[in-house]
Design a protein around this nucleic acid. Structure first.
Lengths: 299, 299
DNA sequence: GTAGTACGCGTACGATGTACGTGCACTATG
DNA sequence: CATAGTGCACGTACATCGTACGCGTACTAC
């Protein structure tokens, strides 16, 4: 009476284990190895191992192999109503955004996200293509938080409104400025309406100028946002604000100014002039200048 | 988390000094003594003493020992003609810049630099504080390549000249835009004359406006430079130019435009309008707008 | 009962920056 | 001159990263 192939294999493995050839912690041959060695198909080998598993002689560890010894813990309840927050792309993007908001893009890692979600690292890769793709998604989601409401009819008001919305987004997500791409619009679908609104407001300038002005505007806003970002990071890394830092280094700066004969700079900083580093004001100032310049072109 | 051995030792010695157990002129335990007493290796003991030395709590006298008290004089020995500068900071900065120019900041690694110099990785750390410090040096050196010659007397010409010099620097070193810090001027000494020139040209606007306008200007130039950088990298990574990419994705873009009812955008791109993505022109355009806006303020 | 296939994801690899520890050259002293 | 003791130069090793690879499982078809 010939036994079924999977039972033959199971018996052979059982013999090796009981003979001590395979000891607890050792890995029994994988299904693929059994396929090769015994000339059987995959599921046959699988079945053989399953026999041993149901005898609690071995247990299977996905990614590791089937190792000798009883299962350590049966934690995975697999079934169940999944009352735990389900993992999906939006959830990953949300957690990634939270990390980047709090600690900057540099602190964003796939492992970190996985840990915070209580999930294995590689599980993330089912929902996002990779880290770069995730960041692009994050950018799109961040922009999407600031949709355009009604855009004013006046061109200047319209441009101002869009620029302020952008500024608000940069302010809310400091990492956004260094992650966004202005030259590949398809990647950030939710940015398109903003571009459209600016183009619409500026179209009287003629096609070429309209596009140039639009890009210039966005480049400027991002430029200021990057100042804000690097400032914030420097502050977080060193625990020193810009003002404190300026105070601390003022001697050194003064020396350099003196050495370079930088009289205008010196004059500006003299008299205890205290420039309050208000980036909101700075943003509005530059925006107004830019729009004044555009307005001058209409005359 | 327990501190590193050398820090433990340093703390202990510091305690003894501050408690008066060791007084100025006394000799602290030699490295060998520390090796015996603390059961550590020689260099660990050395490091511990170095910590105290950098705090100016003690100073080392070769052949005598390390004695309590500040160093009497820092007499730069520097003997030796050093006629063969095999490795020095400038050389490291030069190689690092070459790598970043060719392949971007992301390709810059300490190992890479060391390999290209035919030197061990850690040897670099004798000349530069670390990668961040190296990048700062690179930024300074890059700016230093573009010193200001004569700055025109007219304020508008002067600002234009400085902005163009910056633009040239960004053009030459694509990584520069994302590495430069505009908010911590001391780190980039050779940037100060540029700032000074702009401040001088704009001082008639009043102190606060002068500073705002200066920062806005630099932020704008960097903003455009970043567009150029990301464009160049995207091109290098994917092997696809912006135009080719636009062509390839035009259907997708058109679909998104249609879906969002982005009529102005659509109109702009219609008629086979071919915007030649000339960033030099773009830069000049935005600069002129900005200066027009400033000029309008003078009236 | 056996075989083939699709799929989720754990392990491990090749990078990175650099802290830490070591061996050796050299100096001042006796 | 001998030598104790210093400080310099730098190799090793670690913690961390993104993600390719290939495992075990579940399912369908025969």
């Amino acid at each position: 009476m010939s036994e079924a192939p999977y039972q033959v294999i199971a018996a052979e493995l059982r013999r090796r284990i009981e003979a001590g050839e395979l000891r607890p912690g050792d890995r029994v041959p994988s299904t693929r190895a059994l396929v090769r060695d015994f000339g059987v198909a995959m599921a046959t080998a699988t079945k053989a191992l399953q026999v041993l598993q149901s005898d609690r002689l071995v247990h299977a560890s996905p990614g590791v192999g089937t190792v000798v010894g009883p299962p350590p813990r049966s934690r995975r309840t697999t079934a169940g109503p999944d009352d735990v927050p389900e993992l999906d792309r939006d959830e990953i993007v949300r957690v990634g955004t939270a990390i980047a908001d709090a600690e900057g893009l540099a602190a964003l890692s796939m492992r970190r996200i996985a840990t915070e979600l209580g999930v294995s690292t590689m599980a993330l890769y089912r929902y996002v293509g990779g880290k770069d793709a995730l960041v692009v998604q994050m950018v799109d989601a961040a922009i999407g938080e600031f949709p355009l409401r009604e855009v004013p009819g006046d061109w200047r008001d319209a441009v101002t409104a869009v620029a302020r919305v952008h500024w608000a987004a940069y302010r809310r997500h400091l990492w956004l400025a260094s992650a966004i791409s202005l030259s590949r619009p398809q990647l950030v679908p939710r940015l398109l309406p903003h571009t459209d609104a600016v183009v619409r407001a500026l179209r009287r300038f003629g096609k070429s100028a309209t596009l140039s002005a639009t890009i210039s505007l966005f480049a400027y806003v991002r430029g200021i946002a990057l100042v804000m970002e690097s400032e914030a990071h420097a502050e977080q890394d060193t625990g020193v604000t810009a003002d404190e830092w300026a105070d601390r280094q003022s001697d050194q700066l003064a020396a350099m100014i003196a050495a370079g004969n930088l009289t205008a700079f010196q004059e500006l900083l003299a008299d205890g002039f205290d420039y309050d580093y208000d980036l909101d004001q700075l943003f509005e100032f530059g925006l107004a200048i830019f729009l004044d310049g555009l307005a001058a072109r209409l005359r």
